[in-house]
């Protein structure tokens, strides 16, 4: 490729389709997320939001189309990408300290053996300071509250000082105080960091957000922080006859604009 690496957008998806066992999850997704953007992916549960993140991470390969991260195949540069997975399926009594969990964010490399090195531990401490919880370093991870755990997982994603941060539902199962703390942490990161956050909560759109993407098998992308009627139509429009919302005024209002943009766009 002749384009200089720094001019490449952070993420480019070109005609990407993906499914499990012939069940389509995502179809013909075209998407560009520029560097420094704060993109929020919204959509109903089961609409393919997490799958989209997994494609960007290289955990899945698309059935059709291409995914490029910093102009390269996904999964090539773990140190440039920080990932905060959906919280919840972690073993409760797992024997690890907060510091060790943060150290798991380091990419697989040449270093082996049972211990962590002083320089690595210093980086972990720095990441914990950025998320405001340096005093928790030696606490058992399992003993923390939901909000504290989430901040540990954000610190784990930040240990490599990534250029791209992918967050999957960072506010699920977190009390309002914890949410405020995490919002503060995320807003404070800013700068040149590209952020992509998955959320099923439409209230999440904030000033800092530069791009909203609605995903429900197909994708509708907007330029600003607002959710458009077209997006709502994709996500919640055209309900089946068994759904009470199918007869609501809202649906009747939204359906015409939605049907024009995505072929066969029935909600899943």
């Amino acid at each position: 490729m002749s384009t200089p690496e720094t001019d490449q957008p952070a993420i480019v998806l070109d005609g990407v389709s993906f499914g499990f066992d012939r069940e389509p999850i995502l179809e013909r997704i075209d998407l560009v997320i520029p560097r420094g953007a704060f993109a929020v992916i919204v959509g109903p549960n089961g609409g393919g939001k997490t799958t989209l993140l997994h494609l960007i991470l290289g955990l899945y390969r698309p059935d059709a189309g291409t995914v490029r991260v910093f102009g390269d195949k996904p999964g090539r540069h773990p140190e440039r990408i920080g990932y905060v997975p959906q919280h919840g399926n972690l073993a409760p009594g797992f024997p690890a300290t907060v510091e060790q969990v943060v150290l798991m964010g380091l990419p697989h490399g040449r270093r082996h053996g049972p211990g962590f090195h002083a320089d690595e531990r210093a980086r972990a401490q720095l990441a914990l300071e950025r998320t405001g919880i340096p005093e928790l370093a030696q606490r058992p991870f399992g003993a923390l509250s939901g909000g504290q755990r989430q901040r540990v997982l954000i610190a784990r994603a930040l240990i490599t000082e990534p250029e791209l941060l992918l967050l999957d539902e960072p506010f699920s199962n977190i009390d309002p105080y914890g949410r405020a703390c995490i919002h503060e942490t995320l807003d404070g990161l800013g700068g040149t960091l590209t952020r992509v956050m998955v959320s099923h909560d439409l209230g999440i759109t904030r000033q800092a957000v530069s791009q909203v993407l609605a995903v429900n098998r197909w994708l509708v992308s907007g330029d600003g922080p607002a959710i458009t009627e077209e997006m709502l139509g994709l996500m919640y429009g055209q309900h089946g006859a068994d759904c009470p919302m199918g007869h609501s005024a809202l649906n009747a209002h939204l359906a015409p604009s939605a049907s024009s943009s995505h072929p066969g766009g029935e909600a899943r």
Partner: peptide
Amino acid sequence: SFDPVYARTRGI
């Protein structure tokens, strides 16, 4: 052991 899916994103 902690999180195999996350471990894969680290190249493990």
